[in-house]
Nucleic acid binder design. Structure first.
Lengths: 207, 207
DNA sequence: TCATAAAACGACACTGTTGTCGTTTTTAAG
DNA sequence: CTTAAAAACGACAACAGTGTCGTTTTATGA
């Protein structure tokens, strides 16, 4: 009687399956992936996989949530250096991520969300909207805090600058996903972005 | 003997099929569309459709080419107003297009290209790359021409500004494709873009 | 009006993927 | 060591979509 394996075991197995799935998604994107691919990669039977996940979409959503849990947005109280320096760091981090796009889920995400826009009418997926708003909010708060502390003198409303910043980073990310980072000159564009942010925020230069 | 219908007829039929396909793609995106959808929409049989196109991908590529042939990039010699005014016009045009995203192929394109990145390794699709380079080149030329004429004083290299501009517009387009134009505040972001372009180009103000 | 080439039709065989379910294996409590 | 619960297995039926091909219809030159 009683469960044959521990909850711990099941939790771990679930994670293993998600890790296998992640490898597959990074390598093949979303649309072309089948349950077969994942169970092969995980070295597990059809029945086993379906015991944990109902279908591909379910796998992907779980994976997304798991990934989300990991990288919590870190703009809240970073301490390190001036606000302007923090912003530079953040942008540099984005650049790194864009340049390593082949080792991330970015492309798969792009596929997933673009192909789900149409089905999602029924479900009205809150995920993307929530994520977008969360990031915009974090940036806006950051800019406003910087303004209060006299480190920034925003020339336009903080929310406008936030949204704009997100657009640029997203745009660059997606272009790079399609064209490759040599083509889109990521570093160069990040410099241009920094230039425009300097104009938008007029930070106190501590040089 | 001899062909039963004119070349003209066949050309027209082809166009009709592509128009039907376009309607379907605008409505359903790319991934979820089947040949069945298209032949239903066109009111034609399976055999007829396959007589003109080998498969879905073929249909889509033909449609892309047909669309491309229509809107030739118009930055070459527009004449209307100052360079800065021309730039404003162009951006306004982009804004209109973004706001009407539901009536365009933008979403389908996004799906098509993101799901084709992985297959395209074999074929190494030149389409996107070529399109990107073409637009960047047109913008760069435009900026340089403006600089020579004393209308712009670019603060960064013209190609950098071009690429950056394309990133912003693309980013905004894709975000809007996912989130809707209320969410992304298209107009507001376009204003921010204009502000930054003003800083980047330092145009002579003819106000 | 007839003959015929080709355009249109749609049934069908084929393929790839999904999700299920009866069977086998494994695990740990008794 | 036995036993039963449940975890893992994998064959399979069902389904959806594709591309083909033999048949029917249509358009036009003779």
């Amino acid at each position: 009687m009683s469960p044959r394996v521990s909850e711990e075991y099941k939790k771990q197995k679930r994670l293993d399956l998600l890790q296998a799935a992640k490898r597959v998604f990074i390598h093949k994107g979303y649309t072309r992936v089948t349950m077969q691919d994942i169970l092969d990669e995980a070295g597990v039977s059809r029945g086993a996989l379906y015991a944990y996940f109902d279908n591909l979409e379910h796998v992907y959503i779980e994976l997304l949530q798991q990934e989300d849990r990991q990288d919590v947005f870190h703009f809240c109280a970073e301490g390190a250096g001036t606000s302007w320096q923090q912003l530079r760091n953040w942008i540099e981090k984005q650049q790194k991520e864009i340049e390593q796009i082949d080792q991330t889920l970015v492309r798969a995400n792009l596929e997933f969300f673009s192909s789900h826009h149409y089905r999602s009418n029924k479900e009205s997926y809150p995920y993307l909207t929530a994520r977008y708003e969360r990031i915009v909010k974090a940036l806006t708060d950051f800019f406003q805090r910087g303004a209060v502390q006299g480190e920034f003198s925003p020339r336009l409303p903080a929310p406008s600058i936030s949204r704009y910043l997100v657009s640029v980073v997203d745009g660059l990310m997606i272009q790079t996903a399609h064209l490759g980072s040599e083509q889109t000159k990521v570093a160069e564009q990040m410099n241009t972005l920094l230039f425009t942010l300097e104009q938008l925020l007029d930070p106190v230069q501590t040089k």
